[in-house]
Design a protein around this nucleic acid. Structure first.
Length: 468
RNA sequence: GGCCCGUUCGUCUAUCGGUUAGGACACCAGGUUUUCAACCUGGUAAGAGGGGUUCGACUCCCCUACGGGCUGCCA
């Protein structure tokens, strides 16, 4: 095991800025963040923007927004891989000097011809320049290739996948510096991780094979290999690779759908990782519990029902002020109109009555409908039915009794139950039209909660409206 | 084609040679109730298939099937 494992932990998240922050990327970032934060280490952010064609500043901005929303803060400045291209080229040339790399003058055509001539169309390319005398070098563009060992095996000690052995003969002499002098990913990632002092590389298992190639670069430079942890990718509910047709794949879409960040973190932490029976936990607890040993090896599927359930727990356990603040962020992300000061105050008052029954922010708002909207209350279809004749008569008869009532639950409860008994109806028969009158809905929080939240005057006004 | 990884209830997972294979979500039934949600109780439901090793395999080994990844002058 690498001695880097004993040094203060440094992890990193290194997305390429070619689109929004993918939910899989978000989880990878989360795992790196949890691991670093749980060990007093650092979590670094590097943007892999060496592909100038596909990289955009908008994508970088979207990734930073996504991480910020998820609550994943990084240490230090964001590193641009492209900015480090000179350093990468220097390392490639250092490998040349060390004799662990060589100039290859083979053209695309020659490589294609090599493959065409091989019996297997996937043959590993063997460059004729590997052992060539520099005196024979033509005056032509060249790439720098690794002089990879052709015998023996490269052993990857992975904290998730275990020991993975790759026969060196199956690997080609990969290009580290392109003919235009720019580095390839395989070189840049190693140089950057080394220079940034990364001790633990936690990333998608689509890089597992690459780790073998990258280890050759570490060896070629005499650098210490980091601790590897290749985590399985996230799949769609159907078990297939996550793609657009599964619906939301971008982290920011989840914010716009109204999932609280803490719930999202909790859900994502439990997706492909477990710690005994722990299911619902705070982020602090997650930081304390998280470890590489708890990561599974099979790809996990997204389950929106469980996401919702998890988020429901978090909405219930978050304090009102924080919830209100995050709700404002949701409204903006969803392009919904912001709440005015009055609505804010009313929602705050309604919070205890609604937070335990809401799994998402849109649901919370929906449950708080009675508090947020001023008169006149417009009943929906079902509510209108419960305000038909018997219901309306009950409301009309009840309203005067509330005029002089003390406005607290202990005082109101006997008034309503006694009234229902006098009328010879069950409490439910009375509650239905009250709900309809106060909220315009048939499904609402408790009638007492609503009456107390909107107050005596408003309650009487709404009941009077409905009885008219 | 080659190489690499994976496979426990529908889903997320626990188990790290000996368990009635546990928990959570979802689902079903009952309870509570003022509607819905929540909550409480109970229930249905799993080791891909086949060979080994072993007194004993979900667990270790091999094969097959299925899924995924890599095999680029993309990352």
């Amino acid at each position: 095991m690498s001695a880097l494992a004993d040094r203060p932990v440094v992890t990193r998240f290194a997305p390429s800025p070619t689109g929004y922050l993918h939910i899989g990327g978000g989880r990878t970032a989360l795992f790196n963040w949890l691991y670093a934060r749980g060990r007093g280490g650092k979590f670094l952010l590097r943007i892999e923007d060496t592909d100038r064609e596909r990289s955009t500043p908008e994508a970088t901005a979207a990734i930073l927004r996504g991480l910020t929303w998820l609550g994943l803060d990084w240490d230090g400045e964001v590193v641009s891989q492209f900015d480090r291209k000179d350093r990468h080229a220097d390392v490639a040339h250092a490998m040349l000097t060390r004799g662990t790399a060589y100039k290859c003058f083979s053209t695309h055509e020659e490589i294609a011809a090599f493959r065409a001539a091989s019996d297997a169309s996937y043959a590993v390319f063997r460059s004729p320049w590997r052992e060539a005398d520099p005196a024979t070098y033509p005056d032509a563009p060249y790439v720098i290739r690794m002089k990879a060992p052709r015998t023996g095996a490269t052993v990857i000690e992975d904290r998730v996948q275990g020991r993975v052995i790759i026969q060196n003969e199956t690997l080609d002499d990969m290009i580290v510096l392109r003919s235009d002098g720019t580095p390839t990913y395989m070189l840049a990632v190693v140089v950057d991780d080394h220079d940034m002092g990364v001790t633990h590389v936690i990333r998608g298992d689509d890089h597992l094979n690459n780790a073998g190639r990258q280890q050759m670069v570490y060896a070629a430079m005499g650098w210490e290999v980091p601790v590897w942890a290749h985590i399985p990718l996230i799949h769609g509910p159907d078990g297939k690779k996550l793609s657009k047709r599964h619906g939301a794949t971008g982290i920011e879409e989840y914010q716009a759908m109204g999932y609280p960040a803490a719930g999202m973190r909790n859900y994502l932490t439990r997706l492909g990782w477990a710690h005994g029976d722990a299911e619902i936990f705070t982020t602090d607890k997650a930081i304390a519990m998280f470890d590489l040993d708890g990561i599974g090896r099979a790809p996990a599927r997204l389950d929106f029902k469980k996401l919702e359930n998890t988020c429901g727990h978090h909405i219930a356990m978050t304090d009102d002020a924080a919830l209100l603040h995050e709700l404002d962020g949701y409204l903006a992300a969803a392009h919904r109109p912001p709440l005015d000061a009055g609505q804010h105050a009313r929602l705050r008052a309604a919070m205890p009555a609604v937070k335990e029954r809401s799994k998402t922010f849109p649901e919370l708002l929906d449950n708080a409908y009675f508090a947020l909207n001023a008169r006149p209350v417009l009943p929906d279809e079902a509510a209108a039915r419960s305000l038909d004749s018997p219901g309306r008569d009950l409301i009309r008869a009840l309203t005067p009794r509330l005029q002089s009532a003390d406005w607290n639950k202990d005082a109101l409860e006997p008034i309503l139950t006694v009234f229902a008994a006098e009328q010879g109806v069950g409490f439910g028969k009375l509650a239905a039209p009250i709900r309809a009158a106060l909220a315009g809905r048939t499904v609402t929080p408790s009638v007492y909660d609503m009456m107390l939240v909107i107050g005596q005057d408003e309650t009487i006004a709404r009941l009077t409206d409905a009885a008219a």
